[in-house]
Amino acid sequence: MGILGDIGHFIMVPLYYVISAVLLAWHWFFGLFLDPEGGLSWALSIIGLTLVIRAALIPLFVKQIKSSRNMQLIQPKVRELQKKYGHDRQKLAEETMKLYKDAGTNPFASCLPILLQMPIFFALFRMISQATKTDTSHGFLTVAKAHEFGDSLIFDRLPIKGTFWMDRVWAPGGGDALVMIVAAVLVLAMTATTFTTQRQLMAKNMPADALSGPYAQQQKMLLYILPVAFGLGGVAFPIGVLLYWTTSNLWTMGQQFYVIRNNPAPGTPAFKAKQDRDKAKAAKHPEKYASYEPVADTAVIEEAERRPAKRQQPSRQSRAQRKSGKPGTGSKPNQGGTK
């Protein structure tokens, strides 16, 4: 099998058991009021599986948001390092990594949830593919259940294993046209949600300073590359897998919308919008928000703190004050005492 095959087997086998356990639990639940052998119960089970997985990844999503926000806020410092050490690439790399470490972030943290989902995605893909082609069972999915899963039809017409490029008529009265239409809709939904999620982040939750430089260029490339990659690859995925990925994207889009709206990064359009909403609430319900003070933009505060403080000039004194020698006036006290 080889070392790569052994590593893949070591990773995939536990995933088969976890995925199949969650999938069968949802299938049992939906089987209480739907046809257990029908495709609808299996399709809803895939959606339920997706929700469980995404809920489990919430801590990683929070970490991703914090890391991405820190990356945005340190972009001006990154550009300063590039100007200072542009002639020395090794020194620039060392200082940049030191800056990332001090800020508690790295440029790859935003990809972590996607990377962690890929093994789950491939495990589900193999479960559906092998269940349909060879009745192969994985994890807690028995051979009988694998056969039932693979051959199930949603609404008695749409095969859960159908793909956009399928070359067989699976259901009476249905056929390839229906499968192609549904698969195309799901692929478009998958690409549209991917694009919208990334665009939402760049348009509303990135400071103006972060919209230029290498990090911004990387984000702009991902804005177009990821939807195209998912769109091209999606035409080969079974409908069951497309259901998983589209549901996952919808979760990501909604989750990110909630975070941007309620906890935006400082110095961004979303932060300004939240300040305006808070002020409007305080004006509309003054008795409820009597002690309300708008949250200051920390980006402005940090900029003010970086500026050198103005030197306090001594106040001018009259001639009589200088002669009196009173404490606190800036002149020496009368050494001779009061006559």
Rank of each mutant, 00 (worst) to 15 (best):
186 L>F: 15
206 M>T: 15
180 M>V: 01
193 T>S: 15
186 L>S: 08
183 A>D: 14
202 M>T: 05
172 P>N: 09
180 M>P: 00
200 Q>S: 12
189 A>Q: 07
165 W>E: 12
212 S>M: 02
202 M>S: 09
171 A>N: 03
177 A>D: 07
154 I>R: 02
192 A>Y: 13
159 P>F: 02
179 V>Q: 00
159 P>H: 09
164 F>I: 03
202 M>K: 05
172 P>T: 06
208 A>M: 09
205 N>F: 09
195 F>Q: 03
206 M>G: 02
161 K>C: 11
196 T>S: 13
168 R>P: 02
165 W>K: 05
198 Q>R: 08
158 L>Y: 03
173 G>K: 06
152 S>C: 14
213 G>D: 12
152 S>G: 10
182 V>Q: 08
206 M>W: 01
188 L>I: 12
191 T>G: 14
181 I>N: 00
174 G>Q: 07
206 M>R: 12
175 G>Q: 10
181 I>R: 01
183 A>Q: 05
164 F>K: 04
162 G>D: 08
202 M>H: 05
197 T>Y: 01
194 T>Q: 15
173 G>I: 03
172 P>G: 13
213 G>Q: 10
185 V>T: 06
156 D>C: 01
198 Q>L: 11
168 R>V: 08
211 L>N: 10
204 K>H: 13
187 V>R: 06
208 A>Y: 07
156 D>K: 14
164 F>H: 06
168 R>G: 03
200 Q>Y: 06
206 M>K: 15
152 S>Q: 11
191 T>W: 07
204 K>Y: 14
187 V>L: 05
170 W>F: 12
204 K>D: 13
198 Q>D: 04
185 V>C: 10
177 A>P: 00
197 T>D: 11
185 V>L: 15
196 T>C: 09
184 A>H: 02
165 W>L: 11
177 A>L: 08
160 I>L: 15
155 F>C: 10
215 Y>T: 11
180 M>K: 11
189 A>L: 15
213 G>W: 06
167 D>Q: 11
206 M>L: 09
180 M>C: 02
160 I>C: 03
176 D>S: 04
178 L>D: 09
160 I>N: 00
197 T>P: 04
188 L>V: 10
